[in-house]
């Protein structure tokens, strides 16, 4: 972190943080593919449909297996346009 970032209180983004984030994303995706083997096909189909209407950069589908709910949850995150990271449209669908 340089001194300016310290003064202005910006959050430190080290490359290790980036590595952690990227790994979490990729592993979440791959683990989901393991429990739902059709996931890649589903993702492809969704991209195809969404691209009719939007410029879709990326689609992430996460399975939520938390025991609190009595249902399996699939969370779909759609990135639209350029440099959109956190303000994605979130859609949830029950599987």
């Amino acid at each position: 972190m340089n001194i300016f970032e310290k003064w202005f209180g910006e959050k430190e983004i080290t490359s290790a943080n980036k590595a952690r984030e990227r790994l979490q994303l990729v592993l979440a995706h791959e683990r989901t593919s393991n429990s739902f083997p059709f996931m890649d096909d589903l993702r492809r189909d969704m991209i195809e449909v969404l691209q009719k209407y939007l410029k879709v950069e990326d689609i992430n589908i996460k399975a939520d297996n938390s025991k609190e709910l009595n249902i399996d949850l699939l969370e779909v995150e759609v990135s639209v346009g350029k440099n959109v990271k956190k303000n994605n449209k979130n859609r949830k669908a029950n599987s």
């Binding site: 990227r22 990729v26 993702r43 492809r44 991209i47 990326d58 992430n60």
Partner: peptide, 12 residues
């Protein structure tokens, strides 16, 4: 894919 930073773009 990760070394190139392209892991989120893979469809096929």
């Amino acid at each position: 894919d990760m070394i190139l930073g392209l892991e989120n773009r893979i469809v096929y």
